[in-house]
Amino acid sequence: MNLWRDIKGTLQPFWVTLGYLFKKPVTIQYPEEKRTPPPRYRARIVLTCNPDGSERCVACQLCSAACPVNCISMQAAEAADGRRYAAWFRINFSRCIFCGLCTEACPTMAIQTTPDYEICNRDVLKLVHEKEDLLIDGCGKDTEYNFYEHSGIGVVNERGGNEDEYGPVDPKSLLP
């Protein structure tokens, strides 16, 4: 009967909410209790280093081009051996939306996101992180990758000096 259904539908929610009243809330009391985000969480951006300890970043500007809010800026410079590096590297975290597009664009795996989400600050200028703030000692998520071991022909190593790399073909010789 319709009336019976209506009365039941009116009273049932009361029973449900009464049940919830005595359940433990799911809220995490933030400053006292903190949740551990998964390792692939996208929060604070860092610049990682090669396994040998040298900087990975080659200042190719791809991350800054990929950034939808234009919060990454840098200036490229070249070392004596022809290896590029960033003279300065700056991320404005007050604009960063933590989309992770920069990490996808990076060819050298230099720029990476970390699970450290607590970067808020009362002074907005302190949210502008310079290269020395961003650079970390470790390799981040990939502990073996080194860009110049695979690519960057003749810049750091002699041509053919990298593993899995053939030497240059001598056009003067007809031998295979």
């Binding site: 909410t17 919830y20 009243l21 359940k23 809330p25 799911v26 809220t27 009391q29």
Partner: peptide, 10 residues
């Protein structure tokens, strides 16, 4: 507070 507890928050 009561509304919060009914919605599983504090």
């Amino acid at each position: 507070k009561i509304l919060g507890r009914m919605q599983l928050r504090y």
